[in-house]
Design a protein around this nucleic acid. Structure first.
Lengths: 321, 321
DNA sequence: TCCGCTTATATTCCGGCTGACAATAAACCG
DNA sequence: CGGTTTATTGTCAGCCGGAATATAAGCGGA
């Protein structure tokens, strides 16, 4: 196909393709009181979002506009997550294709001026099985038999083994290690096993909510899972945690924040060693007395590392236990 | 803002947003004769692409359709790369927004039936500074003074230092290690420094082509750089190389393939150790005599690892030298 | 046939990073 | 002033990754 032909073909279907709508949607994350939170809007839980319009200078600025409009505060750090094509839906009698471009945004919770309809909720309200800071959560123990039952329900022996193994890997059964990065796989597995409400034809709050977590509108919980997985992966090799910190913080604050995101505890001395030897932070000279015991030194992020290490390094001690 | 209001707002701008066109675009990669290649179409170098249409079942299937139509062969492994919003352009007198959803596809070169207008080109025709398998390439030595001159041309001392440092990190100046994953940053730096043709107002093949590489249509070279960076990063923790291998291969074949992608050499015994201890492959029982010396055992990929390790592990020995 | 060439395969050594644990320091509280 | 709490420093063994070395198995020509 010649360039000419390609161009004609593109022009044709640009005309046909008018019924494609492009949405921008944000997972806005923060940590407060050692709980990782996400910003939602509306009566039913929705992620802030809005259509991409001609007036937007770029995808990112369009997203910033929408979130600022819906929550009253500009965003700082954002990165693209994934682009989904939703199921078809009918608007004004015509078939309508909907594309969602999702972003992950990091901010400090107190940096958001609350509006009437936006609010923060803990990640773990939506994913109760994801928080392993106090050992394996109850939700996980309750899910296990259901997942095993689902695996048993497969057609043939091979499919049963395959389901069994997928569940074991994702959820750490059979003495496999818990891998906090598999948040998305876990959610998709539960969806496939019809153990989350969104999988039901008519979503309604049920008694199972405490087991399978709070639901969100449409596929928003899936997008949130994507964001959590991305963030849990990224904190291990990029200094993004600091987007969630106040200007000055103690090393324990920093550690608790990372633990909140990862949903697991980490070794204190080792954490300190890693942070210090990478020169991610510098002392402010002040100390914090809030802790009850010996006062902790306050640190601030060395913004210079963003230039120095650029993209490499910056590991946090989060491997399999 | 209430759900109701959100819905109305979305409906409104869906009506206004009709002039948004969505393109699917593919970086199709393969390795042959130890050269990493990309599939291009058209007279001028373009990546295979086409608009997303209502008839497509999903983004992925739309992409598969276009590539199959333009190159005559179905794709295997694909993964999403990034979504760009191009600059505005005018079609039929109306402002037109163009969104490109890019994908990375992996295949064996001989698995593509060549059509009249599609062809393979080495990555390193487009990015001559990226191949470090025979030491630092000539293009890199030639670019260095120009980059330093660009750094010197900044307004003030701080900006000069910042440019200097960015260039040093990206290209490994001042005894910094070469980091093969920074392909995209390097291209963007060269673009900013106006050292690649796309940055010029009217792109024309010039004598500098050997220095700054072959150009592509529009921003396609940038998308290719994104794909290369993603692949170079991904081979280190997922067994995706095998998508590029024939069913049976020697360990040296596998190593040379990884080296071609990474653009750097790796230590042979260490490579073997890593591949074997992860049980990524199993012997076929046959041997290959093509090599001239002692016959090499042939191996095949253990597809079971896709279920076992799922997402974790699978590291390849490619850290900073 | 034997020697040298080429490539494949196996083994060893070493340094650094990581995880687990222990010890000391500095505040507060009664 | 002793007990409690938290911060901070130190130690040690195991593993992993990188480099170098040694051995094996073909081929081809002298």
């Amino acid at each position: 196909m010649h360039d000419q032909a390609v161009r004609i073909k593109k022009a044709n279907s640009a005309r046909k393709g008018r019924d494609i709508n492009v949405d921008l949607i944000a997972v806005v994350a923060a940590v407060s009181d050692w709980e990782p939170c996400v910003l939602t809007v509306g009566q039913r839980d929705s992620l802030p979002s809005g259509p991409f319009e001609l007036s937007h200078r770029s995808l990112q600025s369009g997203l910033r506009d929408w979130v600022e409009q819906q929550t009253g505060h500009p965003l700082g750090y954002i990165e693209q997550l994934y682009t989904f094509a939703d199921r078809d839906r009918i608007i004004a009698g015509r078939e309508q294709r909907n594309i969602s471009i999702s972003y992950l945004a990091l901010t400090r919770q107190d940096a958001i001026r609350m509006s009437r309809t936006s609010r923060w909720s803990s990640w773990y309200d939506y994913f109760p099985w994801e928080d392993h800071r106090s050992g394996a959560p109850a939700a996980l123990r309750l899910l296990r038999p259901r997942l095993l039952a689902w695996a048993k329900g497969a057609d043939n022996a091979a499919a049963r083994r395959e389901r069994r193994q997928r569940a074991a890997i994702a959820f750490g059964f059979d003495d496999r290690p818990w891998n906090e990065e598999l948040t998305l796989q876990r959610y998709e597995l539960l969806y496939e096993a019809a153990l989350v409400e969104e999988a039901a034809a008519d979503p309604k709050p049920s008694a199972a909510a405490s087991l399978s977590g709070r639901t969100m509108v449409a596929d928003h919980r899936r997008i949130l899972a994507t964001g959590i997985a991305r963030l849990r992966s990224k904190i291990k090799y990029r200094p993004v945690v600091f987007e969630l910190m106040r200007p000055a913080f103690t090393l324990l604050h920093l550690q608790r924040t990372v633990e909140a995101l990862a949903g697991r505890l980490i070794n204190k001395p080792n954490f300190r060693r890693l942070v210090e030897q990478q020169e991610l932070v510098e002392e402010t000279g002040e100390t914090s007395l809030d802790t009850g015991g010996r006062p902790a030194k306050l640190y601030r992020f060395r913004h210079a590392v963003l230039d120095e290490q650029a993209v490499v390094g910056t590991k946090l001690p989060l491997s399999r236990a």
